[in-house]
Design a binder for these strands. Structure first.
Length: 573
RNA sequence: GCGGUUGUAGUCUAGUUUGGUUAGGACUUGGGCCUUCCAAGCCUACGACCCGGGUUCAAAUCCCGGCAGCCGCACCA
């Protein structure tokens, strides 16, 4: 299995290892070793290049510990839980709502624990395995809880996603972007979920890294100005309909996918294309990637449309590495409600709209003497009333009767007039919708490693894209003689001076050194040999095809930079 | 979280049944020799019984608990 081979190399060569090993470990936690940490940084740097440099989004960083209120508003305190029940006899643990649904064929998702407990006892539901009695229902919340402050009176949680950290300072962000939609904000950081039983290596971690972008858009305009750049990109889609009908995926270009309504909006499709391009840049082949649409039943209640980018693995099958969702206005609405803040955006119309409407005018000269101190109250009330109701009353009864705070007033037509006025409406307040691409960085790293693994002549290769490979070049002396060693060291030092991560290796034989650097994925190797001593040239070797070519030492640094930055093909040196 | 199963150097493994000498081997790694380009050879060195408790004169070995890995079930808004 490629999985076990790659995890073995990752462990041996310093990419990934399970954490706290000397204390016999703790499931769901992984260390990035020396090479793993560089690989991760390189991938994140590329991600930043995509989303910040090219899309024009901005990055923020918010705390990983969040106070309870914030996560109450997001729904995580109440709903990021599973209702559990246990059989008193065989100790089997179940999802309480699943058991009830299976027996009663009734959807009870989201019901409170005591209600589920009541249903279990009322309906005499027993353990499906042994028929034993079930315990009361308890909630297992997947968030890590902690206490904030010396007295620990305030409950906090480790954030279960980075997204909330972007929604909460929305007003500040809106101000930063000078009040105009659309705009995008990204956050890269740790998120925490206390998984019940994480047993899938780096695929299900209790502490993991997310890279998320929240793109705030006008709900009435989900187009994308640069969609044309992506229109011809081919996507492998697995729409919900195909899943339900047990049909296969389909390859379709982006433009058609929008036209046929397979994907709900242009901007969402744009994000799918962007994700596909990013993964391709990481060296993940297109044929192991598909976009799977969430089924209506699995989609979070607030989302309109959601697509998982899935990648094929030999051990886990298809796994989700990116989720791309239209979260609508759910999050901002909810935070607005809980915090009593206005999280809407004023969107100006292209042309102001003029509406004519009938308004009530009061004659203050008569109002004042007539109602004295009560006059302002009455005028206030009049503004809230329907003009037509007052007109109707005048027609029918000749007067309009009004009751304020238990007191009755009669208004006659001579103190009130009606006037038609023109109102200019320049725009409206709306709560933006959110388009969210959410990347699981750890899973992407696993995918990159998995699909870069190759065997050739019984040797292992990590064919990492040169752009993300941790070490870019290895420098060897062909033999361990003093002159060659000296030159090789000086070449390595010069690479380092030029900000290229390089390593010197003089141990064992040349073949062993090549094999070692192939296994950790170094794309290029430079060897100092006898000819070097005569004419100052060295060989440079391409990991991907083992080919070598000779170039002068003085050119090697520029050539290597060009190779890494894709400005030069190895064949053209 | 439940059940089964396993835990010996960086990796793979012998030894555990039947408790008893200095825990053996291979590969890897470090140092050296040799060597004109893809894990060759020679010398040499480093390196391990998952953790805790119990039984015993004596525990890698038997018993209990914990932790971790694997498999199955469950779980994965």
């Amino acid at each position: 299995m490629t999985d076990s081979k790659i995890m073995n190399i990752a462990k041996k060569r310093g990419y990934l290892w399970s954490s706290f090993e000397i204390y016999s470990g703790s499931a769901g936690f992984f260390d990035y070793g020396p090479l793993g940490a560089i690989l991760k940084n390189n991938i994140i740097e590329k991600w930043r290049n995509y989303y910040i440099t090219h899309e024009g989004f901005y990055e923020i960083e918010s705390p990983t510990i969040m106070p309870e209120e914030a996560l109450k508003a997001s729904g995580h305190v109440d709903h990021f839980t599973d209702p559990m029940t246990e059989c008193k006899e065989c100790m089997e643990v179940y999802r309480a709502d699943h058991i009830i649904e299976a027996v009663l064929n009734k959807d009870v998702e989201g019901q409170e624990d005591h209600i589920l407990t009541k249903i279990l006892s009322d309906k005499q539901i027993k353990c499906p395995k042994c028929g034993g009695p079930l315990t009361h229902v308890w909630s297992y919340n997947l968030m890590f809880q902690t206490l904030i402050g010396a007295k620990g009176k305030k409950t906090g949680y480790m954030r279960p996603e980075t997204a909330q950290g972007i929604f909460i300072p929305f007003k500040r962000l809106l101000r930063f972007f000078r009040g105009k939609l659309p705009f995008g904000v990204v956050q890269i950081g740790k998120a925490y979920r206390n998984e019940i039983s994480p047993r899938q290596g780096v695929i299900r971690l209790r502490e993991f890294t997310q890279a998320e972008a929240e793109i705030f858009v006008d709900p009435k305009n989900k187009t994308h100005p640069k969609f044309n750049n992506m229109a011809e990109d081919i996507l492998t889609l697995f729409p919900s309909e195909n899943q339900l009908k047990k049909e296969k995926t389909e390859r379709i270009n982006a433009k058609k996918a929008v036209e046929e309504g397979l994907i709900s909006s242009e901007i969402l499709t744009y994000q799918l294309c962007l994700a596909a391009r990013f993964l391709s840049d990481l060296g993940i082949p297109a044929d192991v990637i598909r976009f799977r649409q969430h089924l209506p039943t699995e989609m979070a209640h607030y989302a309109i449309d959601c697509w998982d980018v899935e990648v094929k693995t030999d051990r886990f099958g298809w796994i989700e590495i990116i989720g791309i969702a239209d979260r609508t206005d759910f999050d901002l609405k909810s935070h607005g409600k809980h915090s009593n803040e206005d999280l809407s955006v004023f969107i100006e119309y292209n042309k102001p709209k003029t509406v004519t409407k009938l308004v009530v005018k009061h004659n203050m000269k008569k109002f004042g003497p007539l109602f004295k101190a009560d006059a302002p109250k009455i005028i206030n009330k009049l503004e809230d009333l329907k003009v037509s109701d007052i007109q109707k009353a005048f027609k029918k009864e000749g007067v309009f009767k009004i009751e304020i705070d238990g007191k009755n007033y009669e208004l006659s037509p001579d103190i009130i007039s009606f006037q038609e006025i023109e109102d200019i409406i320049r725009g409206e307040k709306v709560i933006p919708h959110v388009i969210e691409p959410s990347y699981g960085i750890d899973r992407i790293i696993y995918t990159v490693l998995l699909h870069s693994y190759t065997e050739y002549n019984g040797r292992s290769f990590l064919k990492l894209e040169k752009g993300i490979a941790p070490i870019k070049v290895a420098v060897f002396p062909l033999l361990n003689n003093e002159d060659m060693v000296k030159i090789a060291h000086s070449i390595k030092d010069e690479f380092r001076n030029q900000n290229i991560i390089s390593e010197y290796d003089g141990s064992g034989t040349i073949g062993r050194r090549y094999a070692r650097c192939d296994e950790i994925g170094i794309p290029f190797a430079v060897t100092v040999d006898h000819e070097t001593l005569e004419d100052n040239t060295v060989t440079i070797r391409n990991r991907n095809n083992l080919k070598q070519t000779r170039i002068p030492i003085k050119n090697i640094y520029d050539v290597l930079k060009d190779l890494i930055e894709d400005n030069l093909n190895f064949e053209d040196i």
